[in-house]
Design a protein around this nucleic acid. Structure first.
Lengths: 226, 226
DNA sequence: GGACTGCAGATTGTCGACCGTCGGCAACAG
DNA sequence: CTGTTGCCGACGGTCGACAATCTGCAGTCC
């Protein structure tokens, strides 16, 4: 039976309804389709999707734990509003995870370093392509994807999970303020500098590069473009 | 109405059913009352608590996101089994958060440093009392509580949340293997050294102290006592 | 006129029941 | 004897309905 026409059959998707709802809503929040403070009534969503309230409830609970919505007892959930203090927290936490990941990569010896820089250069290519295309939404996505690549290379699923949550929050913040913060060139150069820093193999250099990079980003997000 | 007998009325507890269930189960897992791999049937739990399956389901979902149980589609949830690799991940992630918190405290200037060391000394007192009493369960709890104090002092709720999850996982690992790893003296000295390192104000010293401390702990957990 | 009380609408929290799926065992055909 | 097929008990996933709670407004009393 090894060679039969059935070989082309792939295992079909087995995602739970709540997971699909959760992904859908998360995407909408990240993209800014749902405004901060907006009420997310279970009944309305369930109606609109043609499902019961139960899976919607589970999906919303997932989003609560990802801090993309806030739930108040008997009042339902509403889309989160990020204060400047929240933004600083997010970027501080990102800094914690990213720099640790970088340090671990350096400790992994030259092999790990090369593997990391390779993966990052690929991610930088995607980012560069997005910049060239000019779509701000795509730029922010690939930007965060670059950083996620760094974290993923450290091979710690806990760190990856934690970073995913932070990444979604950061993306939401970025996409909400439609600011074209740095020029395209600047973004590329900045991330390229990160790779270079990693290539040096100096712990302090890398950590400082990451910290500065994130601090600048957080500053840009918290200082209103008036 | 400012001064009336009603002043003594505190806002009464308004915890949701699912939260209470979740806390209860988490505690049981941490304490080792539930064995790794054990099946947690929704119906049975709901029955036993005299509630419906809905709140139980929500509670279990919370535990899933805290990685204390694993859920497989149409098979329900079972208590997590930690592999040595998991333990290393947990302690590596703890290291990331704790050292970052420590660095941020140092950057906060002498004031923050003093506040941190004060809080930590108090926590050390509790740990010391637990050691004197000799109850291993209490020792591990206060131990983690000490570390949580460090993280909390950095004033970043995201880091605190992430650390809470890791803390619960670590506690579960520790309590499962009923090993009396280091002597009581050793525990106290080790944590005292952490405070001393923080007091020096030297970033590298602190980070190294934390890293070493956690590495030793993870090693003790992963090397079977034969 | 001001403030408290009671009602009304809406929304969440909870419940019991149904349906689909899973894993294992037995019956059966080759 | 071996591999396949159909059946069975158990469990989770989903559903519609009921009860509890919150918010805002109208009514009422001082």
């Amino acid at each position: 039976m090894a060679e039969s026409g059935l070989s082309r059959l792939k295992a079909l998707e087995r995602t739970s309804t709540s997971d699909r709802i959760s992904s859908e809503l998360r995407q909408m929040i990240i993209e800014g389709a749902l405004l901060p403070g907006e009420q997310l009534g279970e009944a309305r969503i369930a109606d609109q999707l043609g499902v019961s309230r139960a899976p919607v409830r589970e999906a919303l609970q997932q989003l609560v734990q990802q801090k993309l919505v806030v739930a108040t007892r008997n009042k339902g959930v509403s889309v989160v509003t990020f204060t400047p203090s929240d933004i600083w927290e997010i970027y501080d936490a990102r800094c914690a995870i990213e720099s640790h990941a970088a340090v671990r990569i350096l400790e992994g010896g030259p092999g790990a370093r090369v593997r990391a820089t390779d993966a990052l250069r690929t991610a930088l290519g995607a980012l560069s392509a997005a910049v060239k295309r000019g779509d701000p939404r795509e730029i922010s996505t690939t930007d965060l994807s670059f950083h996620m690549t760094l974290v993923a290379t450290a091979d710690n699923s806990r760190l990856v999970d934690a970073y995913s949550i932070l990444s979604a929050q950061a993306l939401t913040c970025i996409n909400r303020l439609e600011i074209v913060l740095p020029s395209g060139e600047e973004i590329i150069d900045d991330h390229g500098a990160l790779i270079d820093a990693l290539a040096t193999g100096e712990r302090d250099v890398v950590v400082k590069a990451i910290t500065d990079h994130l601090t600048v980003a957080a500053t840009n997000l918290t200082t209103r473009p008036a």
